Amino acid sequence: MSEDNEHDVALTGGPGSGKGTLVEHLRRSLGFHTRPEAGPAIIRDWVASSGRALPWVVPGLFAERT
Rank of each mutant, 00 (worst) to 15 (best):
M1Q: 14
M1G: 14
S2T: 14
E3W: 11
E3Y: 09
E3L: 13
D4Y: 15
N5T: 14
N5M: 13
E6A: 11
E6G: 13
E6F: 10
H7G: 07
D8N: 13
L11V: 10
L11G: 08
T12H: 10
G13E: 10
G14C: 12
P15S: 11
P15H: 08
P15D: 05
G18Q: 03
K19S: 05
G20L: 00
T21K: 09
T21Y: 07
T21G: 09
V23D: 00
V23P: 03
V23L: 06
V23H: 04
E24K: 05
E24M: 01
L26G: 05
L30R: 06
G31M: 02
F32E: 06
F32H: 10
F32S: 06
T34Q: 00
T34G: 00
R35Y: 01
P36I: 00
P36L: 02
E37H: 02
E37R: 03
A38Q: 08
A38E: 09
P40A: 01
P40M: 01
A41E: 05
A41W: 03
A41I: 02
A41V: 03
I42A: 03
I43G: 00
R44Y: 02
D45R: 04
V47S: 06
V47M: 06
A48K: 03
A48E: 06
S49T: 08
S49A: 12
S50V: 12
S50A: 12
A53E: 09
L54Y: 04
L54K: 04
P55E: 06
P55G: 10
P55W: 10
P55A: 07
V57A: 13
P59K: 06
P59E: 11
G60A: 15
L61W: 09
F62L: 06
E64C: 14
T66V: 15
